[in-house]
Design a protein around this nucleic acid. Structure first.
Lengths: 179, 179
DNA sequence: CCGCACATGTAAGACGTTACATGATTGT
DNA sequence: ACAATCATGTAACGTCTTACATGTGCGG
């Protein structure tokens, strides 16, 4: 009861800690790799939230290991806080996509800059998709975690949608009208 | 030249002001409606940035109208700042999707909560897609702005991708295994 | 003439980013 | 013994969110 209410960033750290104690450093790496595509957080944030959650009793620091490694483990209160978060109303997804701002205001974007930006980003997204598909293929059949697969598949579908969107843009925008 | 460097949020306001003077109130409404799907901003932010940009000479307040309406118009410096922003390196898109956190940590989400959340969000996205398609169909052929169309189409493709992702989720996750 | 929507603004705090500081340990 | 990397942490700032305060004018 009355346990501290956590935000989504803290909840994600608690989520990782279900699998066993981890240090801040490990959490940063895990977050970047496993949820970085749809939930960004920085090293600075991680250490701050760890300190706060430790203060609040949601996690406990263990014995300090070599190189000042400080592993944190989930407490019962932390487990409860995670479940409370799951039970609370989830915020809607928040997308901030500067490229779309440029497209929206494309009429007033100077010269060929719009086409240039689009070409640039098209390439970035093609690479990201390739990367996701490579990583998907790299997981041996028998050790596929359905949850991790699902989130990666989201990324794949997202990147495909973006690429199809690029492909369907009219020439006025992609700048392919000058032949 | 040395004009103030603006962030993406300010750039979006400058973008709107290219079409003519607008008040803070109008900008909030316009932003919510026209870029809200991929760039959220709040009323509070708008008034703050307007004050700051006015201070910096990027925009100028006009005569106060009724109900204290205060229209701002773009200055040359503001136009320049907008172009500078277009010329700068655009930040990558930033997606924060709590639902995907829940999926990622699905193994530790209590009881049928995961399935429940998914069903909920599936509905939300279906409705959003329907809304986009309705709004798309509502624009008369002759007054279609290709830029606005392009950003809306992004939304449509995004929502379709999300719905297809939902549809492809395994039963372990959607909870349809108990028959 | 009164209630509601319009319109601007402020304050405080939560959250996120960037840069830097500090020291330990590993490998060479 | 030295450089590179590991690992934690702090400081400062920028941005976003939430809530509130204040007043105006339109419509019934």
């Amino acid at each position: 009861m009355g346990a501290h209410k956590v935000n989504a960033t803290e909840a994600s750290l608690l989520g990782f800690l279900h699998a066993g104690p981890m240090t801040g450093w490990d959490l940063v790496a895990a977050a970047q790799q496993r949820i970085g595509a749809f939930w960004s957080l920085t090293q600075s944030q991680v250490y701050r939230e760890l300190a706060a959650m430790s203060e609040g009793g949601l996690i406990e620091a263990g014995e300090q290991g070599s190189r000042a490694r400080r592993p944190y483990r989930l407490t019962d209160a932390g487990r409860q806080a995670f479940e409370d978060w799951c039970g609370s109303e989830l915020a809607a997804e928040n997308i901030r996509f500067p490229l779309l701002l440029v497209v929206m205001f494309g009429r007033d974007v100077p010269g060929g800059r719009l086409a240039e930006i689009i070409a640039e980003h098209r390439k970035i997204h093609a690479e990201r998709l390739a990367e996701y598909e490579r990583s998907r293929a790299a997981v041996p059949e028998e050790e596929r975690d359905p949850y991790a697969m699902a989130t990666r598949d989201f990324g794949i579908r997202y990147e495909r949608a973006v690429l199809e969107w690029f492909a369907a843009l009219p020439d006025v925008i992609t700048g392919e009208d000058r032949r």
